[in-house]
Design a protein around this nucleic acid. Structure first.
Length: 498
RNA sequence: GGCCCGUUGGUCAAGUGGUCAAGACGGGGGCCUCUCACGCCCCAAACGGGAGUUCGACUCUCCCACGGGUCACCA
């Protein structure tokens, strides 16, 4: 007999009134981009309706437990600033929030459903996989017609069983999805899916329905791979006599036109992206826009903070078709976010990367960071840009010849020889003073600044392309080092002209 | 194979019967400039195909093609 007392007690606990959404990952130890996006949408829907966001861990798969996997989930949610209002770590009115701790619940609900006639005990042998048989033929399970009394007797005798959903053999089910609309399927294409497995544990589909109901979830957000099992959910809800939540099925995030992003294919997870120099805010912003777009006055905007997204996010903007993840566009978002950072914040983030390339303690990382902030798309492209600060690279005298700046070997030699003593004479090694020396020389020789700055920058950096110009580099290097490099430049030019 | 879903430039996308079919990334060109970057300007680039409905279809209907999902005692 079903434990109605328990069920009534649980029903009484279900919160009502507010929107409640839940992110329900299974702990695989890996937060892929599609998962992150689902978490985001789930969170944003809750925020948009001023609702409650719940974290539930779906760990019913004994075979797939991964050490430390739940930590990845907690960490990612925290880093992305998607705080949950209820969850395993903080509890809540419908605890527990870990499926393995809810084990005992499902069988009670399944028994109740059996009594209501929408499920039945099945004693058949486990069916060997009949995949690739080409055609799916539903045949009536003989256990379907065993009377409840007889079935209960067999159960009592200890005969192994599963509990299956009893799907009507005729008619259709119409299922409504918030983004795909109404979907009608014939019942005879649906099979009597297993609800409770031989080991007494629920299947994913059953646990989901029961948990979502018990937790008062109003919007079920999940991947579109579950769309085709959704009609069976309707039948389950109807069988229980429960009201059906809104379903929001999201199309997948693809790696290319044919495959979803996946660990298998080596596609980056959230943590991989961080390691590649991407900022959480940029990832969150980009991923949200991958499969969703704002309407109305915001239709042409792309940069949104998480707070703004909470206000602006609408279900209607979610796309029906899959979206291909474009690392290029993420990179664009990242550079936007990097440039918008407070300079101190950027300096702090950049410092470890700067120190990878510049070991010289005399050089201030923050000074280099200031040059870099407007010039890097990812934190990881910092080291390669600034090696010349650490040591003057080998370079060809030809670097001094630049058509646009109208420089020649002879001219550059002359410039460097003239400017060296003037730099030596400088007391205060500041941008303004360094610039003034060069501008004065340009004025005296009636040439453009470029003609003076080019050779100085080359001498001081040994590089054709540098972040920042002659002035900043000269200053950051410090007077001694800068003068040494200019002397080396003079020597190089003399040798080349000899 | 059955069932379900999808299909606007290379990518993300707006569009909801009448538009020269937005915008962004990427690409190309230019300007600015002490290199690079930033910024600004310009250019190329799309409605999968076929029938309908309509005075008029990217928008509605049907068929086809292609892509994806699902058909587990996995989630």
């Amino acid at each position: 007999m079903a434990d109605l007392a328990f069920i009534n007690e649980m029903e009484a606990k279900i919160p009502t009134g507010k929107v409640r959404t839940r992110f329900a990952p299974s702990p695989t130890g890996y937060m892929h981009v599609g998962n992150l996006r689902t978490a985001l949408y789930t969170y944003l829907i809750a925020k948009h309706y001023d609702g409650t966001f719940i974290l539930r861990i779906e760990d019913t798969d004994q075979g797939r437990l991964v050490e430390g996997a739940t930590d990845v989930i907690y960490r990612t949610m925290a880093q992305c600033r998607l705080p949950h209002d209820e969850g395993p770590d903080i509890g809540g009115p419908v605890a527990p929030y870990i499926q393995s701790e809810r084990k005992g619940f499902y069988i009670k609900y399944a028994q109740w459903l059996v009594e209501k006639g929408h499920a039945y005990y099945c004693f058949c042998e486990k069916q060997e996989s009949e995949e690739d048989s080409g055609s799916f033929e539903r045949e009536a399970d003989p256990c379907r017609s065993i009377s409840l009394e007889d079935a209960l007797k067999l159960v009592e005798e200890g005969k192994p069983y599963v509990i299956r959903q009893r799907i009507p053999s005729e008619g259709t089910v119409t299922f409504k999805d918030e983004i795909y609309g109404e979907i009608t399927v014939p019942c005879d294409t649906l099979d009597d899916q297993v609800l409770i497995k031989r080991d007494g544990l629920p299947t994913y589909n059953f646990a989901n329905v029961v948990d979502d109901h018990m937790m008062g979830i109003t919007h079920v957000v999940r991947g579109s791979e579950y769309l085709s099992s959704a009609p069976k959910y309707n039948l389950l809800y109807e069988g229980f006599g429960w009201s059906i939540p809104k379903y929001v099925h999201c199309p997948p995030v693809m790696r290319d036109a044919h495959a979803k992003m996946s660990k298998r294919h080596g596609d980056p997870s959230y943590e991989d992206l961080l390691a590649q120099g991407y900022l959480t805010e940029a990832i969150v912003n980009y991923v949200t826009l991958l499969g969703w777009s704002p309407k109305g006055e915001n239709a042409e905007r792309e940069i949104f903070s998480l707070e703004e997204l909470g206000r602006v996010f609408e279900l209607e903007g979610i796309s029906k078709s899959p979206a291909i993840f474009d690392i290029n566009k993420l990179t664009y978002f990242n550079s936007e976010y990097i440039r918008a950072l407070e300079p101190e914040r950027f300096a702090a983030l950049a410092e470890p990367y700067i120190r990878q390339a510049v070991k010289n303690e005399a050089i201030c990382p923050a000074a280099i960071a200031a040059l870099l902030q407007q010039r890097c798309e990812k934190l990881t492209d910092i080291p390669e840009k600034i090696g010349f600060f650490d040591a003057l690279p080998e370079y060809e005298p030809e670097f001094y010849v630049h058509k646009k700046s109208k420089t020649t070997l002879e001219g550059c030699l002359e410039t460097l020889r003239t400017i060296l003593p003037r730099f030596e004479a400088l007391d205060n090694w500041s941008d303004e003073n360094i610039l003034k020396v060069m501008e004065d020389l340009a004025a005296e020789t009636e040439s453009k600044n470029a003609k003076i700055m080019w050779p100085v920058r080359i001498a001081v950096s040994g590089s054709m392309v540098t972040p920042g110009g002659a002035v900043e580099i000269t200053r950051i290097l410090g007077k001694d080092e800068a003068l040494k490099r200019i002397e080396a430049g003079i020597a190089k030019l003399e040798a080349a002209l000899a």
